[in-house]
């Protein structure tokens, strides 16, 4: 027990901020990992990133009218998601539509953030919107955030097979009577929930890290979707917990005072894991016809 104090700074588990951060962070990590795995499979990383960025518009708006950031993030994501869907009638147009919606909403974001800096004396709000605010999440938000996470996970569980089939082949899915459009709209909802929640934790600009990072890392080590989901969840949880821990410890680091941003640690760990996954060679083929190539 003696050495533990060097790893976990005193008061870590007693701190109410840390407790809230761990609860919210865990819920967000699980949702992001699971939803993110499908985002990676479907090649929707750009949309995922854009949804995070536009969340900042909503969150800045929320700060202006004085409501909780998460509701701003979610409305920003919803508005952008609907706009992208309406503007992209054909799959090819989706990236263009995403780009257009992204830039118009970020334009608004620039205005809102300017207004915030003019109207309020604190500069912390902008920092929190862009780079996360897990230590300042109001304890009463733990419940709604957990419920949102569970809803997103249930939605993915419900969509599971048709979502997978239509990600691999829209034609095959349609031919079997899968309502492909409905499935992709419902998935968009799950995506908005996951992205905007992780925007709250690691910030609008970095929410993609939590969405794509664990999934992209896990996918390198697994060949079955179930295991990918599991491993991505483990990575996301471990990353979030260690990130929170290091951020807490960093309150005593220079230039002492407020501690380093959690999002820095979370993203740094994520990038490290991802790089390692790219270096480690894939498991060899286990083909039965190439006799004994894997002993």
């Amino acid at each position: 027990m003696h050495g533990l104090q060097y790893i976990v700074a005193a008061g870590f588990f007693q701190s109410p901020e840390v407790q809230v951060a761990l609860m919210v962070g865990s819920a967000v990590a699980v949702t992001s990992a699971v939803v993110g795995t499908f985002v990676v499979i479907r090649g929707q990383s750009f949309l995922g990133h854009a949804l995070g960025d536009v969340g900042s518009t909503g969150a800045a708006g929320a700060a202006l009218i004085g409501i909780q950031a998460i509701w701003g993030f979610l409305s920003g994501g919803l508005i952008a998601g609907v706009a992208v869907d309406v503007l992209s009638r054909r799959p090819r147009e989706r990236d263009v539509a995403t780009g257009v919606v992204l830039s118009s909403m970020l334009g608004l974001s620039a205005l809102f953030i300017y207004l915030i800096t003019q109207l309020s004396s604190s500069t912390g709000v902008t920092q929190e919107i862009l780079f996360g605010s897990i230590f300042t999440v109001a304890p009463r938000l733990v419940w709604p955030l957990s419920v949102l996470s569970v809803l997103a996970l249930m939605l993915i569980g419900f969509l599971y097979r048709p979502l997978l089939l239509s990600s691999v082949s829209v034609d095959a899915a349609q031919s079997r009577g899968v309502p492909v459009r409905l499935v992709s709209l419902l998935f968009l909802l799950a995506m908005i929930t996951a992205v905007e929640q992780s925007a709250l934790v690691v910030g609008a600009l970095l929410s993609t890290a939590l969405l794509i990072g664990p999934a992209a890392t896990a996918i390198r080590f697994t060949r079955q979707l179930g295991y990918t989901l599991l491993l991505a969840t483990v990575f996301a949880l471990a990353d979030t917990w260690v990130g929170i821990l290091l951020a807490y410890n960093s309150f005593t680091w220079p230039p002492a005072g407020r501690g380093w941003p959690v999002s820095f640690f979370i993203v740094a760990i994520m990038v490290f894991l991802y790089l390692v996954s790219q270096i480690i060679p894939r498991s060899p083929s286990r083909r039965a016809d190439k006799g004994g190539d894997s002993q």
């Binding site: 569980g157 419900f158 969509l159 599971y160 097979r161 048709p162 997978l164 089939l165 691999v168 095959a172 899915a173 079997r176 009577g177 899968v178």
Partner: peptide, 10 residues
């Protein structure tokens, strides 16, 4: 997926 890919859930 050819067996039941269109059914909801896993």
């Amino acid at each position: 997926l050819g067996l039941d890919g269109e059914r909801w859930g896993f």
